[in-house]
Design a binder for these strands. Sequence first.
DNA 1: ACTACTGTATTGGTTATATAGTACGCTATA
DNA 2: TATAGCGTACTATATAACCAATACAGTAGT
Lengths: 127, 127
Amino acid sequence: MEFDNSRPIYLQIVEKIKKDIISGKLERGDKMPSVRVMASELKVNVNTVQRVYQQLEQEEVIFTQRGIGSFVTRDEQVVKRIKQEMSYELLENFVQGMKELGFDSSQILKLLTKYMEGEPGGSIKGR
Amino acid sequence: MEFDNSRPIYLQIVEKIKKDIISGKLERGDKMPSVRVMASELKVNVNTVQRVYQQLEQEEVIFTQRGIGSFVTRDEQVVKRIKQEMSYELLENFVQGMKELGFDSSQILKLLTKYMEGEPGGSIKGR
DNA sequence: ACTACTGTATTGGTTATATAGTACGCTATA
DNA sequence: TATAGCGTACTATATAACCAATACAGTAGT
């Protein structure tokens, strides 16, 4: 995993994990890798992963059983909540940013469709 | 101006200034506030503004005349360039982020239009 | 009981960011 | 020429993020 130099690593990992849960790569109740294993996989320090898990637990995204491990929440509402939170944040950041660049709504729409047509993996027209 | 705690202030100021140039709030050839004045206005340290100007000069967005001041570039191509850079970055961040949340292109489009309809300042239908 | 695995805590060091204060050299203008 | 304003440079300090190493404590399985 590659990190953006201008933002804390632990926050980037937090977001990555939440995305994996939202998209279904991680399912409710799944056991998370141990802090040491994940630190090794991501090539970061154990303390950094510790901080990640701490943050996720605070947001009720995972729960921890000492000596056993950490697990993805079984609460469906929490998953829904973070999905809404993250998608809204993306929308807000995008639209507001584009408007600050001087684009209006219709221009934003045009640019987006044009961008997605040129991108692989789109599902607008089967391709 | 309010700053996002999780990203360097100087980078946020850099982006702010580039947006102001792109949107026309700052015009080509305009004189920038002195480092001391801007530091005072933004309530940050002079050294931080210094770094901002240094960064902007490196990107050829502003140029500096020692003893006189800093000025917005007169090169229209540079302005076009940073406008494309910043809009592309916003697009990429948005689309990729939404796909990582599990949305496909048509869903993204729907969510965006729905979001913009609920927002003030849109120009889709005159309102 | 022993072992191996978990999360957790602690101490210490490095780097980047931001601050504060001071000083230097250049330019325009009164 | 004196002065005010400009970018620039320097030293020093504080803090957050990250890393490294070690230790402690709880749980499960042999």
